[in-house]
């Protein structure tokens, strides 16, 4: 295996042509490589190429209200930096603080976190499941208490990222080496023809994020133990420009926006995930009450 260490975005994008795999903090990728779920001949280490850091973008003079303030975040910024960043919206800071463990947050980048692979056991153990190109979702027939209650028609895996839900609730945008798009458009439910979970093209690189300041925001997370566990249900809620948005972690193959608490009733839980809907109902209500 070859490791390439580009020092600019251009070099990184060039290096990623031809099937090389981008390496951020490595906290998700390295185990996937070890388990031979991701195969790579060349790894492109992004540390010196992708921007990192947090900046407050100055509001324009015509719109002095606090909600017009925006934050710029380099995609290479470790979660550990964001969890200690006092100015960014609470929901993102809390989601970063509640993700993984300190060691992982010190290494893991926000850009990589958005692209985190599912924890679905069947997928990780390389069952010939639908997501791996097979016919059926093994989770639906077997144990699936950690799995999805939304968007689970084909694949019942759950997206594990806490910060992605927070950023969705904030209405964040991302910029890649070739386009600028709302975060919501980064994700897609996989289809029979295309089983990828994102709209990224091969070799496309997330470079930076932009998000608004929020009047109020929160992230709360139900876990199997007091800390250091993936979300059974994570709820991000944010009020931005007078509008309230809710996004959930751990409930669908991708981070999941719900336009209102009532929309939770459109969930399609599996027998073993019905409890997640109960948790989501109560937790959304509690999160909104605190906004």
């Amino acid at each position: 295996m070859q490791l390439v260490r580009p020092s600019s975005v251009e070099e990184a994008v060039a290096a990623l042509r031809g099937g090389a795999v981008a390496l951020g903090g490595g906290t998700d990728l390295v185990p996937l490589l070890r388990d031979r779920i991701v195969e790579a001949e060349t790894l492109v280490e992004l540390h010196a190429a992708v921007p990192r850091g947090v900046r407050r973008c100055t509001p324009t003079s015509t719109s002095p209200s606090p909600s017009s303030a925006r934050f710029w975040i380099g995609a290479g910024t470790p979660l550990a930096v964001l969890e200690a960043e006092p100015e960014i919206p609470t929901t993102l800071r809390e989601a970063c603080r509640l993700a993984a463990s300190p060691q992982l947050r010190a290494m893991g980048t926000i850009g990589g976190n958005l692209l985190q692979a599912t924890r679905c056991w069947y997928w990780r153990l390389k069952f010939p499941c639908w997501l791996h190109g097979g016919e059926t979702c093994d989770a639906k027939e077997g144990q699936h208490r950690e799995h999805a209650i939304f968007g689970n028609e084909r694949c019942a895996s759950a997206h594990p990222s806490d910060p992605a839900a927070a950023l969705l609730a904030l209405g964040a945008r991302i910029r890649t080496d070739r386009r600028d798009l709302p975060l919501a458009e980064l994700y897609r439910l996989p289809t029979d023809d295309d089983r990828s979970m994102t709209t990224l093209e091969p070799g496309e690189l997330i470079l930076e994020l932009e998000l608004p300041a929020a009047e109020s925001s929160i992230y709360v997370k139900a876990m199997d133990r007091q800390r250091w566990a993936f979300a059974l249900v994570g709820v991000a809620a944010a009020r931005v420009g007078g509008e309230t948005r809710i996004a959930l972690a751990g409930v669908a193959p991708v981070p999941w926006l719900v336009s209102s608490p009532e929309e939770l009733e459109q969930a399609t839980p599996l027998p073993g995930t019905a409890y997640k809907l109960e948790i989501a109902r109560a937790l959304v209500q509690r999160a909104l009450a605190q906004l």
């Binding site: 809390e94 509640l98 992230y219 709360v220 997370k221 139900a222 876990m223 133990r225 007091q226 800390r227 109560a282 937790l283 509690r286 605190q290």
Partner: peptide, 12 residues
């Protein structure tokens, strides 16, 4: 209950 996840202020 819920620990670091900040899921309750006493509700439930």
């Amino acid at each position: 209950p819920g620990g670091a996840g900040n899921t309750t202020r006493g509700e439930g």
